Simulated scan of single mutants.
Amino acid sequence: MTTTPLNLRGLKCPLPALRVRKALKGALPGTLFVVECTDPMAAIDIPNLMRETGDAIEHSATQGEILVFHIRKG
């Protein structure tokens, strides 16, 4: 399985969610994305996006001001 980092630090809403959607669209099932964001709205937008796409957040954490999501393409 492939792990792909997505550094979305400094991007403001709605760009983090849009970039994650684009990355997921072109990915093979089983791909793991490690997404790093600094926009606090990503804590709402990315889980909502996962409900829309059917992909899964396997882990999420906050490291200082950085939100980290481990997203698995379904």
Rank of each mutant, 00 (worst) to 15 (best):
K73C: 02
I71F: 03
A42P: 07
M1T: 13
L67D: 04
T31K: 00
A61G: 06
L8G: 15
H70F: 11
I57V: 12
V68E: 14
A56W: 08
P40R: 06
E65K: 15
G54H: 07
G30A: 09
T3F: 07
E58S: 09
I71R: 06
A23P: 00
T53K: 11
R19L: 08
T38Y: 04
C37V: 12
P47R: 08
L24T: 03
E36H: 13
K73F: 01
T4Y: 04
R9A: 15
E36L: 05
T2K: 15
L32N: 05
D55P: 00
A56P: 01
K12E: 12
P16Y: 07
R21H: 13
N48F: 03
G26C: 03
G54W: 02
I57E: 10
T3P: 03
D39P: 00
C37M: 07
F69W: 02
E65M: 12
L18T: 05
D39L: 06
R19K: 15
L6M: 05
L6C: 09
T31A: 14
I71Q: 09
V20N: 05
P40A: 02
V35I: 11
P40W: 06
Q63E: 15
A61I: 00
R9C: 15
M1L: 11
P14T: 11
V35N: 02
R51Y: 09
Q63G: 02
D45K: 04
M50C: 04
M1R: 09
T31Q: 01
V68T: 12
G64A: 14
H59N: 10
I57K: 01
R72Q: 13
P14H: 08
E36V: 03
T53E: 10
D45N: 11
G26Q: 14
P40K: 08
R21N: 01
C13T: 14
P40H: 03
G30R: 07
L67T: 01
I57S: 04
A42M: 10
G26A: 14
A42K: 07
A42I: 06
L6W: 00
L32K: 09
A56G: 04
V34T: 12
L28K: 15
V34A: 05
K12P: 00
H59S: 10
V34E: 15
Q63K: 14
A23I: 07
D39S: 10
D55A: 13
L24C: 09
A61Y: 04
G10N: 08
G10W: 02
E36C: 10
P29A: 08
L28V: 14
I44D: 06
G26E: 15
V20Y: 07
N7Y: 10
A43R: 15
